[in-house]
Design a protein around this nucleic acid. Structure first.
Lengths: 211, 211
DNA sequence: AGCATTTTGTACTTGCTAATACAATCTTGT
DNA sequence: ACAAGATTGTATTAGCAAGTACAAAATGCT
């Protein structure tokens, strides 16, 4: 997938830094307060840039939102690539713990960087929905790959369906994050992830390998 | 939980009808386009009421949103009460099918009546977050009750934890709805619910009762 | 019927926010 | 150094949406 087409792609080092700063700040604010709860003025103030810089690098708010989506999925995939590609039981356990701990910061506020955007934008902008769908697919694919590797290593039984299991983990993750965010209680995400991973073990592993 | 405190409670039949009409229209529009994507003007037009009626029955937009949340959870609980309180395997199967079919209308558009509101409002309004949390708790409790009944009837093993299972179903439901909405593909909700209910069967039932 | 209360119609105000215009300044390559 | 282009500052515009004011009409009660 091509990088997001900016209004004016930055050529100088300074320009790239400015554009990046805008995106990072916008991503944070939009996850906190939602897209329509975040004004360009707030982004500009927090990023210490002016109106002209905003419109120099982005065609408008929609354009910025697109860049934020790309930024979020990049961050997620990068964070996951650094944990062994989720191709061992241990990696999954660490991922589970890390995910819960990360979400529990600030009283489970914020929710999922992509999920909160998806919920807000899916029905409003078909373009944003498509971009979010593609991003979630990449995320799901990273789960899928790890599980496939485990299957090829005999850690999952032959009858296991990695694609299906990946979707189960994805949906449990999103539901758990939303419920923990709404209730301000980490137990929802914990139970959701334990259930999904438990399912992977139960369905995927030969009986004698169960703990 | 007391009914939502309106600015002016309607006393006449006509007044009640007007207020109800506003809430129903607002609920539909807000689920489709989000809260901040729905203007009071649009609600007024669709409900065929004027500005003065809106502000006569509601103190403002926030007040209307509160009434919409109450309206949504009432509808959900009513729909569920009419299906045997989810206290048999058959009831759960029917619930699963009905939920998937209902969500698949309009290409999985809309998502969850409460979930989409929760995602949008949780970080913006503490009052709305509390109201949504309480509503989800009631929903979860309706799952819990059904599962508890099944346990007392021996349909679930003694080691089964109905409260935990209820949370697992709730999170899978929300995650599945969000993913199906984003991808416009019912399979996400199907897999999520099958996983959660499969977990109930696997963890809850004595081995010899597994299909 | 007649009066008090509820309900409704219309016009206006206020504030915010995305978007634009245009000029000034900085960077880079030669 | 010096153009050419990239980057940034400031001021303004235009439109929308929440909320308000006030009067008119309908309704219910005795």
């Amino acid at each position: 997938m091509a990088a997001y087409s900016a209004d004016n792609a930055p050529t100088t080092r300074k320009g790239r830094a400015t554009r990046e700063r805008i995106i990072e700040v916008a991503a944070r604010l939009m996850q906190d307060r939602g897209v329509s709860g975040t004004t360009l003025e707030e982004v500009e103030a927090a990023a210490a840039v002016g109106r002209s810089q905003m419109y120099h690098y982005f065609a408008g708010k929609d354009d910025l939102v697109g860049a934020v989506i790309d930024h979020q999925i990049r961050g997620i995939l990068a964070s996951q690539a650094s944990r062994d590609g989720l191709s061992s039981w241990r990696a999954w356990e660490e991922w589970r713990d890390h995910t819960v701990e990360h979400s529990s910061k600030d009283n489970c506020a914020g929710g999922c960087p992509l999920g909160s955007l998806a919920s807000e934008l899916a029905e409003i902008s078909e373009e944003a929905r498509g971009r979010l769908s593609a991003s979630f697919l990449q995320w799901e694919e990273s789960f899928h790959e790890g599980l496939s590797t485990m299957k090829s290593q005999g850690l999952l039984s032959d009858s296991a369906d990695p694609a299906r299991l990946a979707i189960g983990i994805m949906t449990s993750l999103e539901g758990g994050l939303l419920m923990s965010q709404t209730h301000r209680d980490r137990k929802y995400l914990e139970i959701a992830l334990d259930g999904a991973l438990g399912h992977v073990r139960a369905v995927g592993a030969p009986p004698h390998q169960l703990s």
